[in-house]
Design a protein around this nucleic acid. Structure first.
Lengths: 149, 149
DNA sequence: CTTGGCATATCAGTGCCCTTATATTAATAT
DNA sequence: ATATTAATATAAGGGCACTGATATGCCAAG
């Protein structure tokens, strides 16, 4: 019976979905970071620029909700992006507390330069997913996030 | 033609494998951390205890290779585990530079208590993978890591 | 109007992961 | 035997993610 001793044991860590998930995400992050560093971006920074491209003037809190991170985390990323000149933050004209964020010209250039890099990584993943349908795989991964709460 | 404008655009980030991969791993990490904190462990610390259980006396460098992190990262985890009393580190009797690491009794207890928590999370993932075969999914995720270099 | 509740922004601390750099020891080549 | 190379351990610094705490502004209920 080579299928395993029992259902209550995890056997080889490499055989678990959890461990493989961690390795895959780690590899993606490393790959993206090393490719994006040529244009002065990290992976989370690229994601934020993407969000700002479709939703200019978003607040820190709005960006945090969209990226599923805490406002504190997003705050750090925005401070770094502002220091690098990729975004500008200005107080909201009506809501005194809110800081609105927009892409600068430099930020738009960086985003454009980054899109090719990210597209190549995504194509790598879709090829490695074969023979599974990439859309089916993406849907399953989103189910993972939901299933874990 | 609702299937997308062109093959060179990424459309909705949520539709990409890369973004979904990040969300799934983030959810897993959060779930594991919050469940494991009751027994004083983080997710990476649990992984290291697992490795030490099957390979007692491993060195920092060996553990780092096994977990696919840098020796510096593993060093930090081991220092935390030693401070918490879950492992003990002693100089190797023959190799002057090497520090061998072993589980303490407390470490073994923590590992035992953690295994149930981790098993439940893995079962969540396997159910959410349906109708895909969990083993097929795990294999695909390992291909992701390889495909990205 | 004042108070309570909610959203927002930001500071401080912790952990993990990376890169770069330094020092020591082991193994190997000359 | 000495020099080089490889492996190990460790420190320092940066980025990202979390929790907790603090301060401010908005708004609705009393």
């Amino acid at each position: 019976m080579p299928s395993g001793a029992s259902r209550t044991e995890l056997g080889d860590p490499f055989a678990t979905i959890g461990f493989a998930l961690k390795l895959a995400q780690q590899a993606l992050r490393t790959r993206m970071d090393s490719a994006l560093q040529e244009i002065g971006l990290t992976t989370p920074q690229y994601a934020v620029l993407t969000f700002l491209d479709v939703e200019p003037g978003a607040s820190n809190a709005a960006l945090a909700r969209r990226a599923f991170v805490t406002p504190q985390t997003m705050q750090g990323i925005l401070v770094a992006l502002e220091r690098a000149g990729f975004v500008s933050r200005t107080p909201h004209p009506e809501h005194g507390r809110v800081q609105t964020t927009e892409l600068t010209a430099s930020g738009r250039n960086a985003l454009k330069a980054a899109s090719g890099i990210v597209l190549r990584a995504e194509m790598c993943l879709r090829e490695a997913a074969a023979p599974l349908d990439p859309q089916v795989v993406a849907a399953m991964l989103r189910r993972f996030a939901d299933a874990l709460r």
